[in-house]
């Protein structure tokens, strides 16, 4: 897990902000990418995230882990991006977002047999397809749990939701994924 506790990264280490960016950029970018499936938007959000964090670094007291604090900023930016209707026009005008089939076609290299790879690809496609249809909050919680490997308390801190609400969203998302499996099988 890439999570680093606030004890390991004291607030004064935020002074070396380039190091913070190097450490957390992949995670923030990845969350934005899997949420929006748009590389340009993901890069913009990652930049915004670190810009805001840099401006607000004096306010970081270490109550939450640095990674969780950054993810909270990223979650808000992704939400704003999704909700901001003013950007829709520009989104249409820009390069088409990454095709879902491209994303689903990429698998972690596990050295599996050809048949196993086909089955694996089907399962991964089913999960991608299910996440695409999830409501925004369910999708955010699902991705933080199953891509970023965050536990329920960390997700609650990153999303500003109560732990019970996070749990409810996660279970509904999992139900949707399982239903999609049922359609495929």
């Amino acid at each position: 897990m890439e999570q680093v506790s606030s004890l390991e990264v004291p607030a004064r280490e935020l002074d070396d902000f380039d190091a913070v960016v190097r450490q957390y950029w992949p995670r923030v970018f990845r969350f934005a990418l899997v949420s929006l499936r748009d590389r340009d938007a993901a890069e913009t959000i990652a930049q915004d995230c670190f810009l805001r964090a840099h401006r607000a670094r004096a306010m970081f007291r270490g109550e939450a882990a640095l990674g969780t604090w950054l993810m909270r900023i990223a979650v808000n930016l992704v939400r704003d991006h999704t909700r901001n209707r003013r950007l829709r026009f520009w989104e249409r005008a820009r390069q088409a977002p990454v095709d879902l089939a491209d994303a689903a076609g990429i698998l972690a290299d596990g050295g599996a047999s050809a048949e196993a790879v086909v089955l694996q690809r089907e399962r991964v496609q089913a999960v991608w397809a299910a996440t695409a249809t999830l409501p925004e909050r369910q999708r955010t919680v699902f991705l933080l749990r199953f891509v970023e490997d965050m536990d329920l308390l960390e997700i609650a801190a990153a999303t500003g939701m109560a732990e019970g609400t996070v749990k409810a969203h996660l279970f509904r998302a999992l139900q949707a994924v399982r239903e999609r499996f049922g359609e495929r099988q």
Partner: peptide, 26 residues
């Protein structure tokens, strides 16, 4: 089946993110 699919999804999402340049900070 469910846990395995979720694990594969995690691996695939991370691999895809790497292929899109996630590791390369501008």
């Amino acid at each position: 089946r469910l846990l395995s699919a979720l694990g594969e999804f995690r691996g695939a999402a991370r691999a895809w993110s790497r292929s899109q340049g996630a590791e390369a900070v501008p």
